[in-house]
Design a protein around this nucleic acid. Structure first.
Length: 910
RNA sequence: GGGCGCAUAGCUCAGUUGGUUAGAGCGCUACAUUCACAUUGUAGAGGUCAUAGGUUCAAGUCCUAUUGCGCCCACCA
């Protein structure tokens, strides 16, 4: 069969993905003899569309999952999506707007129906895209944060926290988005700098209307709700005025001048208008000084009836009119330009209005305490470490969490009010928190009961993700709901999990999960809260390691975002370069914890690598005799059976494997990827294959090239799943899929301890050749392997080496000399490059060479002198670690040896 | 204001606990083309490791300061 000379990802990717799924290779189940390895996916929004951040995040997770699966662990990657309250509601609102409808036109029930409809239609876009990415999630387990069962978990958590006294309702100044008409948490309020003004307003004294106190404000419209003016008690300018009464202009309300030490004397005029209902600081001051709370706005940020003449004006319109009116009365002293930073809604970017309203809160301090402990004790580790500090700093200053949201899409708050009790003004009574709607009020017996209109913050469901996905606390068997018919049949015949009771339940088996892979932005939103929830409800940490990867940025360092138009669409890259190229390039440039700077050209590296693997494999397959693949390496028991070059490549592969697992276990994915890249390309292809090419039918060569390729494909598979499967399926092999082939252990890779020992004692061919080259042509080199030179002259050593080369190449050097100008082909290039052959063949400029040796001798002599001095230094010998001193002594010895040899070479050529 | 990070080749970045000669990809230059691969190969040029001090026998690596860039948090009447 003809194999094309270019790898075409489109021919293979969908095919193998389907194959893996059909063979249930992604599914995991509790197992008595296997160690679990669990990752829960950070659930993407149902409205989500795959972007580079997802691509990076999920590639990392997939590498971990596939790696551990191939290590023989029971690896589960739990998938799902997040209902994303406001985001989803926004999308659906936009879509019904096309029909000229607003959500209030439909009413709550109809609107929520529309959202579900939307979810059914479009909600799996992101899932399909994750599949394109190769994500090996156990899709039969997919969860959604608004699933019926998941919602039960959410409800349960609310009720339990309430019963424990950790949930309360309070009035609070919240960040209010007038457009979305909902409360936003502090984290959802993005602060941007804004060019505004500082307005100096004059408030007349009651006793003496000709005299004023001047206050500075950036939001003059809120003055309608002022209930005091505050000054610092230490401020000499205002000391006498404390306790006096002012008349608030335009509304003519009398307000007091109060003293509060929080006032900054230097800012503005040192006198501050206090508007407890419209500013968080003023709110605190209002509580402290028992001020009146006057709310002058409606939820849509238009002024309300308390604003008198300004009623129904938008806040910014009212601002202009009020300023006009004050100016007319001579009460506007001056206006100064002022840069302020205002909170913006992170969804719609509307300026946030601090707004007084009733909200539900979770008391966080008691939950935070154990969550701080587990991180301090190292039970949960962050990678990179520095995020630990960030986490602890936030947790130690944690604020209560406002969990109610004034939208329709979400888990409705399970609180019911008795109309009768509420009307009687008794808010203590007639508030029922319950898992199911109560029939009647327990206080008055009335059946007139209604549910709280608000829904819960989206994070109130996602913080339960690591255990609610396993049906906490009910632990129902999900076989009935979630497993496809095919799989059910499969399980029934092969798996005893659901038949016997001694198997651990999913929740027990897979929780706590192993690693959480996420972006730094959501450490507080999500990671911290999951730790708290895990400890509170499971009494155990939700995951052991948290890997925080960087933010994906464009080549100029800007965050990729739609509004900046600097998006690189991963799906386009997949289309153009292939999934494996996308994955490999992304990983190879993502250093641990560093942000990623991307440009499209980056992906060429991955594509080229895929193509290189493809062609090297093609070459091997074209030249491979199938009967040789059965041969065990143990068969080569004598040193001569395995040529130098075979021993070398096995030795190199051995160290690569060791290095690789070290890197992966430490979450150094880029180093792992680059290691595989340079081993395969620059050692296996550039040197090994070129060297055996002329004797490719040699049995040992056949065996070694096959074994190294086959095992290399396995270790590469987690990074580039598609191409490795495609090639592996074309190689003669046993087994169904590369996915069920274990990643070779170092020993397994080399089959046999004896071989391993032999291999590791063999010197490194390439290093030697390169060293020889340097020795002869360019620079002094100390690393020249002593084995070659031991008790031999330079000339003899060269003969030994060229004999090796000749054996490998089966090319006579004299013949080479005659033909080398005319012969084409890469092998000649390589030999030409190995200047090792040249001096013997008389092809070198001896004068130049002699000069280089001379320089080398000078350098070595000076090095020896320096080392001698260092070792003669008492302080060094005393204080440097013993190994270091020993190392330096060895080094000195080596230098002396090398000087000796150099002198011999000098003699030999003169 | 509080916290954190970064500064290494023309560009984008690696560089584990200090220890021989600081690496990669891309780009650039020269050469190679019946060859598994031009999405290729060989070679080459290109670095005062931001600056100034310090610790050390030894600093790209540790400490201090400075400069420049970036991020997070808080405040901003």
């Amino acid at each position: 069969m003809e194999i094309p000379s270019r790898y075409n990802p489109k021919d293979t990717e969908d095919k193998w993905y389907k194959f893996w799924q059909d063979e249930f290779l992604f599914s995991a189940k509790p197992s008595l003899d296997k160690k679990p390895f669990t990752i829960v996916i950070p659930p993407p929004n149902v409205t989500g569309i795959l972007h580079m951040g997802h691509a990076l995040n999920n590639t990392i997770q997939d590498i971990l999952i596939r790696y551990h699966r191939m290590l023989g662990e029971e690896a589960l990657w739990m998938p799902g999506t997040d209902h994303a309250g406001i985001a989803t509601q926004n999308v659906v609102e936009k879509s019904i707007a096309k029909e000229g409808l607003k959500r209030h036109d439909l009413g709550r029930e109809k609107f929520v129906e529309r959202v579900w409809l939307w979810k059914e239609q479009y909600g799996s876009t992101i899932i399909k895209q994750l599949k394109k990415l190769g994500a090996s999630c156990d899709w039969d387990r997919i969860r959604f944060t608004m699933d019926e069962e998941y919602s039960k978990s959410v409800l349960e958590v609310f009720v339990r926290l309430y019963e424990k006294g950790l949930i309360y309702r309070g009035s609070y100044i919240i960040n209010w988005c007038p457009r979305c008409q909902t409360a936003l948490s502090d984290e959802e309020a993005a602060h941007h700098e804004l060019q505004g003004n500082l307005y100096y307003l004059k408030y007349p004294l009651k006793d003496n209307p000709e005299d004023f106190v001047v206050v500075a404000t950036t939001r003059p419209e809120t003055m309608l709700g002022d209930t005091a003016v505050a000054v610092n008690p230490k401020d000499k300018r205002y000391k006498k005025l404390i306790g006096k009464t002012l008349v608030l202009p335009l509304v003519n309300r009398e307000i007091k001048i109060i003293a509060d030490s929080s006032i900054d004397i230097k800012f503005g005029t040192g006198a501050v208008k206090v508007t407890p209902a419209h500013d968080p600081n003023d709110y605190l001051m209002g509580k402290k000084h028992n001020l009146e709370f006057i709310n002058v706005m409606q939820p849509d940020a238009k002024m309300n009836e308390l604003a008198g003449d300004y009623k129904d004006m938008d806040r910014f319109e009212a601002r202009e009119v009020i300023l006009e009116d004050l100016k007319e009365k001579g009460l506007l002293e001056k206006v100064e330009p002022h840069v302020l930073s205002a909170g913006h809604c992170y969804r719609c970017h509307t300026i946030i209005e601090p707004y007084l309203s009733k909200q539900w809160f979770v008391k966080m301090a008691p939950l935070a305490k154990p969550a701080i402990e587990v991180v301090k004790k190292g039970k949960i580790k962050f990678y990179p470490k520095r995020w630990t500090k960030v986490y602890l700093n936030w947790m130690e200053n944690i604020q209560d969490w406002c969990i109610s949201r004034q939208i329709w899409w979400g888990h409705r708050i399970p609180v019911y009010y008795c109309k009768y009790c509420q009307q009687a003004g008794n808010s203590e009574k007639g508030t029922i928190v319950s898992r199911i709607k109560p029939d009647k009020c327990p206080d008055c017996g009335s059946a007139d009961i209604y549910q709280d209109e608000d829904v819960l913050d989206t994070w109130f469901s996602s913080w339960l993700w690591p255990f609610a996905t396993f049906y906490w606390p009910f632990g129902i068997s999900h076989i009935a709901n979630c497993i496809s018919q095919d799989k059910k049949a499969d399980l029934a015949s092969s798996d005893k999990r659901y038949a016997t009771s001694d198997m651990p339940k999913d929740l027990e088996y897979f929780y706590p999960t192993s690693v959480l892979v996420t972006a730094p932005e959501i450490i507080f939103f999500w990671v911290a809260r999951m730790i708290m929830a895990g400890l509170e409800f499971m009494k155990e940490i939700p995951f052991k390691d948290v890997y925080i990867h960087g933010t994906v940025r464009d080549i100029e360092g800007k965050k990729m975002s739609k509004s900046l138009g600097n998006i690189i669409d991963p799906l386009e890259i997949i289309d153009e370069y292939g999934t494996d190229a996308l994955r490999f390039s992304l990983i190879s440039i993502t250093a641990q914890g560093q942000d990623v700077y991307l440009s499209k050209e980056r992906f060429e590296q991955g594509r080229n690598f895929a193509n290189k693997i493809w062609n090297a494999s093609r070459f091997i397959m074209m030249n491979l005799d199938a009967q040789n693949i059965q041969v065990d390496l143990c068969q080569f028991t004598k040193k001569e059976d395995l040529s130098l070059v075979n021993r070398w490549i096995l030795s190199r592969f051995y160290s690569v494997l060791k290095e690789l697992s070290k890197n992966l276990d430490n979450f150094k994915f880029n180093e792992a990827a680059n290691l595989l890249y340079s081993f395969f390309w620059h050692e296996f292809c550039d040197w090994y294959l070129e060297l055996i090419k002329s004797d490719i039918k040699n049995k040992a060569n056949q065996v070694v090239m096959y074994k190294v390729l086959e095992k290399f494909l396995r270790v590469l598979h987690p990074f580039m799943p598609f191409i490795t499967e495609e090639i592996w399926q074309n190689l003669p092999h046993e087994g169904k899929s590369i996915m069920v082939q274990l990643i070779p252990h170092v020993q397994e890779a080399l089959i046999d301890k004896k071989v391993e020992k032999k291999v590791s004692s063999v010197f490194d061919l390439i290093t030697t050749i390169r060293n020889m080259r340097q020795e002869l042509e360019i620079l002094p080199q100390d690393k020249v392997n002593v084995d070659v030179f031991a008790s031999k002259s330079m000339k003899q050593a060269l003969e030994v080496m060229s004999q090796e080369i000749r054996n490998l190449a089966k090319i006579d050097l004299l013949e080479l000399q005659e033909n080398y100008q005319h012969k084409s082909g890469q092998f000649v290039n390589i030999l030409k490059d190995m200047h090792i052959v040249i001096p013997l063949a008389g092809l070198i400029d001896v004068d130049k060479y002699r000069e280089k040796i001379k320089q080398r001798i000078v350098k070595t002599e000076s090095d020896i002198k320096a080392k001698d001095a260092m070792l003669g230094n008492e302080s060094f010998v005393k204080r440097a670690p013993a190994e270091v001193v020993e190392k330096e002594r060895e080094r000195l010895k080596e230098l002396k040896d090398s000087l000796h040899k150099l002198k011999a070479v000098k003699d030999a050529i003169s």
